[in-house]
Design a protein around this nucleic acid. Structure first.
Lengths: 242, 242
DNA sequence: TATCTTATGTCTTATAGTAGACATAAGACG
DNA sequence: CGTCTTATGTCTACTATAAGACATAAGATA
């Protein structure tokens, strides 16, 4: 039975909502397979095709990953395929380079006006601030300053960051159960300050890309605010306008 | 009958290819409605659902636009909805601003090494170079230098540009029958040179966004190469990482 | 017997087709 | 001029068949 107006939403979208709910509740972990379309159809008392359409949309949203003959899997940041979705930096020369993340600092603070607003928390709530350096082929390219709500990331420390391999989001996902699914970036050009210039080994005052990012998890809840300064001497920010 | 291996492609994708071909041949003009799913199904001797799936993909690619109860239309750059797909600049303050394009210069030249390679033409082939200023709320924000293959854009001049209203791509589409469907951008931070600084009314040497774009039409054929210098004093480049 | 190869069954998603619901526009009719 | 009807088109939901992946059993071979 379909819910009628005033807030009509087709059956397949209601099913999408239910699957999303199960996903959010952690019924299946990232990387795991979800039940087959047939099973989900039985569970929600709809036809398999309706479940398919729901899953289709979720696969398009990069929440699920279909693999023919195998099943449908919960998207994971550990998956190398998902790696370049949030890192748009490519070498000017072309090709791909090995990247390393070097944590510099990690400390606790209270949320100021701006942090509280963008992270959707109260003024003065605990936050964690991380500073790190991103290297390509052992050369420094990005300095990131990352603001996280202290509540959800309790236990995060410099040691934890140093021990972790793989991407930061991969760590957030496996250790804190927080899956980033969407992000917004705002890019500007700024002049390098003294400290950043030294870290990136460029002249003070030279132009850098300032990339401000807010990341969201299920239900469009913001869980990360970061600002990166990119040296575009040997790399550039690549964007495909489909 | 489905084409078997070695180059298997499902039926709906073959149909997509045929529709694409008709589109490219100009069978239906931008903004016009294409035949109904039923008609296309009859034309290609497949079922309506197969045509639907082909059209679904093309709508996802922004080549077609579905409108419930009305029909399916060829996407057009004249459509205000398509306007912000290729212009990612938003005011820092939020909201939307009226924008004006001011053509500065337009001259002919021969393709150099780099222009020939990116535009896929021969060294020395005729090209057209356009310089223009983009204003938001009457304040200069972007200086663009645009390289076009002379062959396809024969007849383009400063006067034509000045007479045209709406977006540049809208002009290309209606006057030269060239529809941009995809673009790649590479973004770097650079220092403003004297001339650009004056145009944008910023200090010489201040950091600017350098946005290099290659646009493609049907069949991934490159038809435009442009480089824009963006002042990010009051605006920023917005990107949604879905 | 031990091992390798081949067949087979069963799981999955992918693909194709059909029918009814619904939205919209345009003409018929008072 | 307003209301009803009809035509046209997409949207939604369902069904059926095909094909890939994989585990396992059966057979061949040494």
């Amino acid at each position: 039975m379909v819910q009628e107006s005033p807030t009509f939403s087709p059956l397949y979208r209601q099913i999408k909502g239910l699957i999303l709910q199960a996903l959010e509740a952690g019924e299946w972990r990232p990387g795991e397979a979800i039940p087959s379309e047939t099973e989900l159809a039985a569970r929600f008392s709809v036809s398999q095709g309706t479940v398919r359409k729901a899953i289709d949309e979720m696969a398009a949203d990069n929440l699920l990953l279909r693999r023919q003959g195998k099943g449908t899997f919960v998207a994971s940041h550990s998956d190398p395929r998902a790696f370049f979705r949030f890192l748009r930096l490519v070498p000017l020369a072309g090709g791909i380079e090995p990247s390393t993340s070097v944590p510099l600092e990690c400390w606790r603070a209270k949320a100021g006006q701006e942090a509280a607003r963008t992270l959707g928390i109260k003024l003065g709530d605990p936050i964690i601030i991380v500073r790190r350096l991103l290297q390509f082929s052992s050369k420094p390219v990005v300095v990131d300053e990352i603001y996280l709500p202290g509540e959800t990331f309790a236990g995060l420390s410099l040691d934890v960051l140093k021990d972790s391999h793989g991407s930061l989001y991969s760590l957030f996902e496996s250790r804190f159960g927080v899956r980033m699914i969407r992000a917004e970036e705002r890019i500007r050009a700024v002049a390098a300050d003294r400290a950043t210039a030294e870290l990136l080994r460029v002249a003070e005052g030279s132009p850098l890309l300032s990339v401000e990012r807010v990341s969201y998890t299920y239900g469009d809840k913001p869980v990360e605010w970061r600002r990166g300064l990119y040296s575009t001497a040997d790399h550039c920010y690549y964007n495909d306008l489909g």
